[in-house]
């Protein structure tokens, strides 16, 4: 049977997903997630030793487009859903550590 997903793992996954969970939720999700993993674990019964990993579920490859410019959104439309903006920038909470381009 699957190992139980402990609460620290749930907190870790929640942090990666930028979710703020209450202690109650952590306890509840740890049980629920463990059950889901247990269900999926059934797949481990299959012998896949001689099966190549699948990169894509469709048997196609090399779908390309030419390097041709298409119309972009106008700036107003692009910013329309933004909760906050400043001039034509998205305004977001201050980013302390800049990992852009990593």
């Amino acid at each position: 049977m699957a190992k139980k997903l402990d609460e620290s793992q749930v907190r870790h996954v929640a942090k990666l997903a930028r979710l703020d969970l209450t202690d109650d939720e952590v306890a509840r999700f740890s049980g629920q997630l463990s059950a889901i993993l247990g269900y999926v674990e059934k797949l481990n019964e299959l012998d896949t030793d001689s099966v190549e990993p699948l990169a894509h579920c469709l048997p196609i490859h090399n779908i390309f487009r030419e390097d041709v410019v298409t119309e972009s959104l106008d700036t107003e439309s692009a910013l329309k859903n933004a909760p906050q903006r400043i001039d034509s920038f998205f305004k977001v909470p201050k980013i302390l550590e800049d990992d852009s381009g990593e």
Binding site: Q84, I86, D87, S88, F89, F90, K91, V92, P93, K94, I95, D98, S100
Partner: peptide, 12 residues
């Protein structure tokens, strides 16, 4: 990201 003065960043 442009880090401007104030408690926010501006994203292009």
């Amino acid at each position: 990201n442009t880090h401007t003065l104030g408690n926010f960043s501006a994203v292009d």
